[in-house]
Design a protein around this nucleic acid. Structure first.
Length: 275
DNA sequence: CTCCTATCCTGCGAGC
DNA sequence: TGCTCGCAGGATAGGA
């Protein structure tokens, strides 16, 4: 579900909701594992610390407290819900609510994740190495350029669409935005990565940045699960040019949008616009 | 190294 | 109506 724009929107929601840096009163766990076991005892040591900030790296949310940091990855179906005094005061747990963090001021954060592909982990030198060390550049950062992309595609024979979803090449681009960015850049997704010219790399980088920024502006894309921390949906799903539009006409050239499986993932492109 | 497939898990829609 | 099948936004392990 969540790619970079969706995680960025959640990060912004959390920053807004927790800008007064409330004290963490408790972590509650309603099961022991998501994708991996959760280090409950270590996380509970952060109780009593104030939440200083929430950052994003790749598709991870990083919560910084006075006593240390922890991170959350939403996997496919993870949602953080902010619950305040007024709204649902002591709402029953939902069937897939797995974690609850209670804060001073009667605010709490509840994590719901039906498929449990998410991650919730303490951030130490060791887990930083495991979770974050191998990650490539941020797509919206200055270090992600046509030159850097072109260099990292050398020797890579996989499809360009598979390559830009590789977190070592660039982070945050998932299945939706990979198809959308390649459409905007006029590159056929099946093109072998090392065959994409230097000039096309410049254009592709520009379009990746563009589509991610537009999606953030629109509050992300909601297909079925993604939600803001207040439960609202994103809007960018209404602006897809090719994703899930197979069989429909291209909005630019009237050709029929095609689909195929690349690297095990559904891929969409316009045979008229993308060569 | 790189590439490719299977796998974790639940829910939902299509098709029968 | 109710069942089965295939697929879904991610990421990794393991084998070729």
């Amino acid at each position: 579900m969540p790619e970079l724009p969706e995680v960025e929107v959640v990060k912004n929601n959390l920053q807004e909701n927790f800008k007064d840096q409330p004290k963490i009163l408790s972590f509650e766990f309603f099961r022991s594992d998501l994708r991996d076991p959760m280090p409950q005892a270590q996380l509970k040591k952060l109780e009593g610390a104030r939440l200083l900030n929430v950052q994003r790296r790749a598709k991870y949310l990083i919560f910084e407290t006075e006593k240390g940091s922890f991170l959350s990855h939403l996997g496919m179906t993870g949602v953080w819900r902010v619950e305040t005094k007024g709204v649902p005061p002591d709402q029953e747990l939902g069937i897939h609510d797995h974690i609850r963090i209670c804060f001073a001021g009667s605010v709490r954060l509840t994590y719901n994740d039906p498929r449990r592909f998410g991650v919730f982990d303490i951030l130490t030198d060791k887990t930083r190495q495991k979770r974050l060390a191998h990650l490539g550049p941020e797509p919206l950062g200055l270090e992600f350029t046509g030159a850097s992309l072109w260099a990292s595609l050398r020797g890579r024979t996989v499809a360009i669409k598979v390559a830009i979803m590789d977190q070592k090449i660039v982070v945050g681009v998932g299945n939706i935005y990979a198809s959308e960015a390649l459409f905007l850049a006029g590159i056929k997704p099946q093109t072998k990565a090392h065959k994409v010219s230097r000039e096309k790399c410049d254009l592709l980088v520009e379009k990746i940045k563009q589509v991610l920024k537009q999606a953030i502006q629109a509050g992300g894309s909601t297909i079925s699960d993604f939600a803001h921390t207040n439960g609202r949906s994103g809007d960018f799903q209404n602006h897809f040019k090719v994703y899930a539009r197979d069989g429909k006409k291209c909005l630019v050239c009237d050709a029929v949008i095609k689909s195929a499986v690349l690297g095990g993932r559904s891929t969409f492109w316009c045979p008229g616009c993308q060569r």
